[in-house]
Design a protein around this nucleic acid. Structure first.
Length: 492
RNA sequence: GUCCCCUUCGUCUAGAGGCCUAGGACUCCGGGUUUUCAUCCCGGCAACAGGGGUUCGACUCCCCUAGGGGACGCCA
């Protein structure tokens, strides 16, 4: 049987480092075994999935140098590869589960569920559906559903005993069934949840090995049960360790740049990033550290993946990037600089900002240095302002970060409108409000228009600069962060 | 809180019972090459979480404790 792996990102936000990480291992595994690697879009969250995010993910993944044999953009024999286009498939399978009693319809209200959850929490139990609708007569339930009554379909999970599952890296894992929720499989909008869709699709798409993040281990019983109820063989599962922040918590954008766009625009070579990512939990048999994707494929062995959660270390990434840059020939180097930013397409958004302000072409470089390159390091003094105290600056920066994180669209006008609204609710004049942001983004008193600059820099770099500005202001303690968060929430 | 996973230098890791006086890489600190800087080269600091077993012998196997992480959504 041929090896088939997949990566299944959800188009709900910016392309994430973690996606590239998981994709890399799936890719290397499949290629090593001369199998196929599939890209599937898991857009079952109607509220949050966007076509824009999907495009961005495909684009970012292409940038890394990974490619896939089947996917929404390249097609394949097991399509469609977008879950929103497979609703009939899920409906059919849900019916099958309903028919065999493996699943049941649930009409409970959100209020009741919240209530049950609260009580369980108070008793110190794992929260779990209490089985309220489990004993309802299936015909009656079907009737009510036919009459259009809102409901979901839940998985019928046993209340006792233990579930044994196998992880390729960890061996056998036992999880009590009582810990496993009677998971919603079909939402009231008719869309499947991840759990139903992933099992159905992995099976139908012939996925032989699942390499995914460790956060899925606790969902294995649900998946195990679904495979059993369908009478399917479960693929071999390998749970990769989670990338960590320096404090060992799960890598998060609040603490570190996690967007692939950040690494791309900051000038990391994709092959260096992949090389570094490969070292997160995996090593070459000969302990070589600098290698190409091709070399990785040749040597890849899933058994050599370690289970401890690796801390993402920027210092080592930088070193790695330097290694790859120095190995380029002068010609390649010039080409790469061009591909990075010095090309017509990338420079175009800068033209309207810069041309009017230019007398000699050499003026250009100093005007855009902070856009193409890093912004200078900041200190407390940079935030001296006639009407704003450092504490005010902190509030502005913190709230701006929160506001910006909620933004769907990253155009200049949206940025402007959104931050103006924030200034208003904070009751700070726009002129003053802008000042600390100017410094944080550009590191200068005089610079190109703020919102254009932010739009050009992109989310990842802007967030990183605002965060670093916050650090320059003395940082934010845990306690302070809580207070700021509350303050922000109370504004709206 | 409940359940699950994890645990070798600050960080990434090698190590599949004797080869370990625990190796490599990043960072840091010294030194050398170099007009400066960087590169490059050489050297140094630095770890088997703790406690019990098993064994002639444990970093390696088992148990307990501690610590860290994850999951507990009509998100994935």
């Amino acid at each position: 049987m041929s090896v088939r792996t997949r990566v299944a990102p959800s188009p709900t936000g910016d392309p994430h480092l973690g996606t590239a990480y998981v994709a890399l291992f799936n890719f290397a595994f499949a290629r090593q075994r001369e199998g196929q690697f599939v890209l599937r879009i898991e857009d079952t969250d109607r509220a949050r999935s966007t076509a824009m995010a999907e495009t961005a993910i495909l684009d970012a993944l292409r940038w890394t140098g990974l490619d896939w044999d089947e996917g929404p953009d390249v097609g394949g024999a097991h399509g469609p590869y977008r879950q929103s286009e497979r609703l009939d498939v899920y409906r059919e399978h849900a019916e099958q589960l309903l028919g065999s009693g493996a699943a049941f319809r649930c009409f409970c209200t959100k209020e009741r569920l919240d209530d049950v959850r609260r009580q369980q929490q108070a008793r110190g139990e794992t929260t779990r559906y209490d089985g309220h609708c489990l004993d309802m007569d299936p015909d009656e339930a079907a009737d009510r559903a036919d009459r259009g009554e809102a409901h979901v379909v839940r998985l019928n999970v046993p209340g006792t005993g233990v579930c044994r599952v196998e992880d390729g890296l960890r061996g056998e894992i036992e999880i009590p069934w009582a810990q496993t929720d009677m998971q919603v499989l079909v939402k009231s909008d008719g869309f499947p949840t991840y759990h139903l869709a992933v099992v159905v699709d992995d099976h139908l798409m012939g996925i032989s090995h699942v390499l995914r993040g460790e956060e899925w281990i606790s969902s294995m019983p649900k998946h195990r049960l679904l495979y059993d109820r369908f009478g399917w063989q479960m693929p071999v599962h390998y749970h990769l360790p989670l990338l960590r922040n320096p404090d060992h918590s799960k890598l998060s954008k609040r603490r570190n740049p996690t967007g692939l766009d950040y690494y791309r625009s900051t000038g990391y070579l994709p092959e260096a990033l992949l090389n570094y990512l490969a070292l997160m939990g995996w090593s070459m048999p000969d302990e070589r550290e600098v290698f190409s994707l091709t070399e990785m494929i040749e040597a890849f062995d899933i058994e050599r993946v370690s289970t401890g959660g690796p801390v993402f270390d920027f210092a080592k990434l930088d070193w790695m990037n330097g290694q790859h840059i120095r190995r380029l020939s002068p010609d390649e180097f010039m080409d790469r600089v061009g591909v990075w930013a010095l090309n017509r397409e990338a420079l175009a958004p800068l033209v309207p900002l810069v041309q009017q302000r230019t007398e000699r072409l050499s003026d250009l470089v100093s005007q855009v240095d902070y856009l193409l390159g890093d912004r200078r390091p900041l200190s407390m003094e940079d935030f001296n302002h006639k009407r704003l105290e450092p504490a005010d600056c902190k509030r502005i920066l913190d709230h701006a970060i929160r506001r910006l994180d909620d933004l769907q669209d990253w155009s200049r006008d949206t940025l402007h409108d959104s931050l103006r609204a924030l200034a208003e609710v904070m009751d700070i004049g726009m002129r003053d409000f802008i000042a600390p942001l100017f410094i944080a983004v550009s590191g200068r008193a005089v610079s190109l228009p703020l919102f254009d600059a932010m739009s050009y820099l992109g989310r990842g770099r802007v967030r990183a600069r605002l965060r670093s500005a916050l650090e320059a202001l003395g940082g934010v303690s845990k306690k302070e962060a809580k207070r700021l968060e509350r303050g922000y929430r109370e504004l709206w």
